[in-house]
Design a binder for these strands. Structure first.
Lengths: 336, 336
DNA sequence: CTGAAAGCGCTTACAG
DNA sequence: CTGAAAGCGCTTACAG
């Protein structure tokens, strides 16, 4: 910029004004500066400019996800990007939060980059470490599960109600032996969402006065383990006739087992959250699903409202899930 | 940092050394500084530090993708993130490159942020606008399709060979009437990859002395349009008995049509690139697929090698695709 | 409407 | 081993 000023024969300040499209610059000077800019291939340095700017606004927000490649989160990411762009912000995303330590490390990194806001899908169960940052003015929104030991906005789904609804859907069709295939225990979002989906499962059974036992409950599953668990459950004497799966990865494992056992058409299956191809399977897979675009958009909207100075009380925003009937969940109990 | 120095009673330089874990600092001073840091809740400002650092290294690379939510690209993104993290870099990703203008806008933005490297899935057909940036030292790697009018590294797939192989797979099973369902014409990657896949399709036919006509070729499809095109093609008198689909979104459309016509088990289908659930369908969908993790890792490796000063000649890296047989591509010609 | 100067939070030769 | 000073590329009161 100094070079531009020198070549154009004006002061730094004038160049700065031209670059920022300040209207109070005479046309003649503007032209001279523009000429110098093109001659020197000058490109503004956003880093330097925001660094110096009032309040040191970086025009960057951070997004912490377990994995940007996970389809649901990838769609959330895109939605956040779109909102950010509309506000003139860029988004710095980090993945790989497989442990509380990794979450903190990634957060530190983003804080060091002076992001103005942070959207977090938590991997940790204790967010007091964010207090100082929050007090220094950084907006923080939690996604998928609320923070612990910290007052901050969050955007979550009605995990419990939605799961109950999915299970009830199968109970309505005569099933009484329903399996629950769950994932994480442990930390953060995995713990929170799985817990609530499991509670919803229990709610549905209890409401129908079906004894809630752990006999049909399997936790800590992956795709592979879900396949094995399903095989094992379905080959028991008192095998479940319906399955509720808490997550797409697990649903896929269950489907593999059902196909191997040739029971896809006879065992009811409802999964939590939609996945690509679910409608192409035979039967189509019935799911209770959240809308990832909505989740990302709402979270980003709240974040930018806070960044813009919104001081309204902190809130937990609960988004509804919807039941998508495709066939697998409508399979009735077979009274042979 | 000034505050920390004041509280610890040392100079700025000493604080800087401690923060950067410079070993030539006495233990006593280190302890004093650390105390001050914790007392003041001091957090280093990466922006300022890299801003001042030799060469103005930002430790950020930019990643331009059509859509971070697209499953293939989301996985590429994750791979790039992982490599970047290993190098101590963050990645700034931008989506929504639906036009050459948007590509340029996004690139300008990243340049203004002084990224040290750029990985681009091009939407434009003319990359001369990047020349100045390239000469100023920014590493640039193209993904999915090579640059035009610019000498830069690229990581692409053997689109033509892989498509030919997929088509040949069906010809080997007796088919002679094969349809090609393609996507973009127009700009950038969509144009390049679709063109080469189509050429591969033609290669395979020609090698078997099957006349290459446009009768079974449909371009510019989306999922919806692919479904319609497939319906239309299969209800003709001389309907094709095999289908080659150039992209997952299109493959899904074709599958819908095949299911609606109850011809999933009788019409051969091979798709380009794998997709979630392809192995769960009945029949499973045979695909020629690239490995997105590999694509992202290779591109990032090259980028960081360039950032680290590698001056070896610019190269086009061609990654192999593999044929994944799952059933749909092995359906033989039915000689009724 | 424009120029000269200070300063954002750091790092880095330069002395000592 | 450490301090005082300059400066990265900008913006912003302060004068004129």
């Amino acid at each position: 910029m100094t070079d531009v000023a020198a070549l154009a024969g004006v002061s730094l300040r004038t160049v700065s004004r031209v670059m920022n499209e300040d209207p109070t610059v005479s046309e003649a000077l503007r032209a001279k500066v523009q000429d110098a800019v093109t001659q020197l291939h000058y490109k503004p340095n956003l880093t330097a400019s925001h660094f110096r700017r009032r309040g040191g606004r970086s025009l960057v927000v951070g997004l912490l996800l377990h994995d940007v490649a996970e389809p649901f989160l990838a769609t959330v990411h895109r939605a956040v990007q779109d909102v950010a762009r509309a506000h003139g912000y860029d988004v710095l995303a980090a993945s790989g939060l497989e442990s509380p330590e990794r979450e903190r490390e990634a957060v530190e990194r983003l804080i060091a980059r002076r992001v103005e806001g942070l959207i977090i899908t938590p991997a940790d169960n204790d967010h007091r470490y964010l207090l100082a940052e929050q007090m220094s003015g950084t907006a923080i929104v939690f996604l998928d599960s609320p923070p612990n030991f910290l007052a901050a906005d969050s955007v979550v789904t009605d995990n419990r109600k939605a799961a109950a609804r999915g299970v009830r859907h199968m109970l309505d069709r005569g099933h009484r032996r329903v399996a629950y295939l769950g994932f994480g225990t442990g930390f953060g979002t995995a713990f929170y969402t799985n817990l609530n989906r499991h509670l919803g499962f229990c709610d549905a059974l209890r409401r129908r006065r079906i004894p809630v036992t752990d006999a049909y409950v399997r936790q800590n599953l992956t795709t592979k383990l879900a396949e094995q668990a399903t095989m094992e459950l379905l080959t028991r004497a008192d095998a479940p006739t319906a399955i509720f799966s808490a997550q797409p990865a697990i649903t896929v494992g269950a489907i593999r087992a059902l196909q191997a056992l040739k029971q896809s058409e006879t065992t009811a299956l409802v999964g939590y959250d939609d996945f690509y191809g679910a409608d192409l399977l035979v039967p189509g897979i019935t799911v209770v699903a959240q809308d990832p675009v909505k989740v990302g958009t709402v979270a980003a909207d709240i974040l930018f409202r806070r960044i813009d100075g919104d001081m309204s009380p902190i809130a937990q925003h609960v988004l509804p899930s919807k039941l998508v009937q495709r066939g697998s969940g409508e399979i009735p109990l077979n009274l042979t």
